[in-house]
Amino acid sequence: MEGEKICLMGLFRDEGQAVSAVRGLKDSGEFHLERVHSPIASHDLDDALGLPKSKVGWFTLAGGIIGFFSGFLLAVFTATRWNMIVSGKPVVALAPFFIVGFEFTILFAVFGNVIGLITQARLPRFKIYTEYDPRLTGDRYGVLASCDAPRRNALSLFFETKGAKVKPFKRAST
């Protein structure tokens, strides 16, 4: 039978200390690394966590391809409704329609980018974690880890040796 789990968050002022804590937690067998928060984008923390490359770009690419054909074909469609030669140009004129296609490429690529961003980052999220500290969007890096209740002091000591202030959270999980 598993006992009560507790969560502790190590709040760091320094990114290097947070990176060191993440590496230490991943190497330790007894603590479970839950989440990491940062006030800025951090490549060092990404590397320490071993996060894969984001897939947002595929959404952007898909949006761009759909956009180009949408724009170009929209121009072709509107031109072929009447089939009238204007200013001696062909009804389906490639150069001007390419411009429409280009603008739609950018527009739809951006839509794809936004859709990719909100789906991948799971936004919007109107219920914020209970294990959260307002300073995480200010000047602190937060490393949240869990362990069995009896190992609480060991986890707390681990964070303190890495240079963190420790914030405890109760979690009713098994």
Partner: peptide, 9 residues
């Protein structure tokens, strides 16, 4: 929330 998973994307 500034979670690394959010920052990555």
């Amino acid at each position: 929330t500034g979670e690394l998973e959010q920052w990555r994307h």
